[in-house]
């Protein structure tokens, strides 16, 4: 049915745009936004597979997407923490260049 196809195509398109953004972007935060976008695209594709009709909804993709969101949050936070730590080290080095 058309609604499901729209979601699937949008999910794939988001994944592709996110992938291009990951390659193009220079700043780390943009790269992380791109990765999150790819994640959302995949989740959208999963949710599209849950639509089987007006009264049949498959709950397994919903549970998978919930798990995926938590994992994505954890991964993004870890990357952000690394970026902040690197930038802190760079700032300290800039203040004491002879260190």
């Amino acid at each position: 049915m058309t609604q499901e196809l729209i979601y699937s195509v949008t999910g794939i398109a988001l994944f592709a745009i996110g992938l291009f953004g990951l390659i193009v972007a220079g700043h780390i935060v943009r790269k992380l936004v791109a990765i999150n976008m790819m994640g959302i695209g995949v989740f959208m594709l999963f949710l599209a597979t849950a639509l089987h009709g007006p009264d049949t909804v498959d709950p397994i993709p919903h549970a998978l997407v919930l798990t995926g969101i938590v994992v994505a949050v954890a991964g993004t936070c870890l990357c952000l923490w690394l970026a902040i730590s690197i930038s802190k080290l760079d700032n300290e080095k800039r203040k004491n260049p002879q260190q």
């Binding site: 972007a25 220079g26 700043h27 780390i28 943009r30 970026a83 690197i86 930038s87 760079d90």
Partner: peptide, 8 residues
């Protein structure tokens, strides 16, 4: 790149 402004 982390904080450079022109690193888009």
């Amino acid at each position: 790149e982390l904080v450079e402004a022109d690193s888009n």
